[in-house]
Amino acid sequence: MKRASLIALMLIGTFSAAPAAQAVDYPLPPAGSRLVGQNQAWTVQEGDKNLQAIARRFDTAAMLILEANNTIAPVPKPGTRIIIPTQLLLPDAPREGIIVNLAELRLYYYPPGENSVQVYPIGIGQEGLETPVMETRIGQKIPNPTWTPTAGIRQRSLARGVTLPAVVPAGPNNPLGRFALRLAYGNGEYLIHGTSAPDSVGLRVSSGCIRMNAPDIKALFAQVRTGTPVKIINEPVKYSVEPDGTRYVEVHRPLSAEETQNVQTMPYTLPAGFTQFKESQGVDRARVEQALYRRAGYPVSVSAGRQPVASGSGVATPEGS
Rank of each mutant, 00 (worst) to 15 (best):
M1S: 15
S5M: 12
S5L: 13
I7R: 09
L9F: 05
I12P: 02
T14N: 13
A17G: 14
A20R: 03
A23C: 06
V24G: 01
P30D: 12
A31E: 15
S33L: 11
R34W: 12
R34A: 13
L35W: 04
Q38N: 14
N39V: 08
A41Y: 06
W42S: 06
V44F: 02
Q45T: 08
Q52G: 14
R57Y: 09
F58N: 03
D59S: 15
E67K: 01
A68N: 05
A68M: 06
N69T: 07
T71C: 00
G79T: 10
T80W: 06
I82M: 15
P85G: 10
T86W: 03
T86H: 03
T86E: 03
L88I: 03
P91K: 01
P94S: 10
R95P: 00
E96K: 13
G97N: 03
I98W: 09
I99M: 06
I99P: 04
A103C: 04
A103W: 01
L105C: 03
Y108D: 00
Y109S: 07
E114F: 02
N115R: 14
S116I: 12
S116Y: 03
V119M: 11
G123T: 04
I124A: 03
G128R: 10
V133D: 08
M134I: 12
E135L: 07
T136V: 08
T136W: 10
G139H: 07
K141Q: 13
P143A: 12
P149W: 01
T150V: 07
A151D: 12
R156W: 04
R160H: 11
G161C: 08
T163E: 11
T163L: 05
A166D: 13
V168L: 00
A170C: 09
N173Y: 08
P175G: 11
L176C: 09
L176E: 11
L181V: 08
A184R: 08
Y185C: 06
G186W: 08
N187D: 14
I192Y: 08
S196Q: 07
A197F: 08
P198Q: 04
S200A: 15
R204Y: 14
V205T: 15
V205Q: 02
S207Q: 14
G208D: 12
R211T: 05
R211G: 01
P215E: 11
P215A: 08
A222S: 15
A222K: 13
Q223D: 14
T226S: 09
G227I: 05
I233W: 03
N234D: 15
E235W: 02
V237I: 15
K238Y: 04
Y239R: 04
Y239K: 02
P243H: 10
D244L: 07
G245E: 01
R247Y: 01
V251D: 00
V251F: 00
H252T: 00
S256G: 14
E258G: 02
T260C: 01
N262L: 04
Q264C: 03
T265N: 05
M266K: 07
P267A: 02
P267W: 02
T269M: 11
T269S: 13
P271N: 09
A272C: 00
A272R: 09
T275C: 00
E279K: 14
D284K: 01
E289D: 15
E289L: 12
Q290R: 14
S303F: 01
G305Q: 09
P308A: 11
G312P: 04
T317M: 10
T317P: 02
E319T: 12
G320L: 11
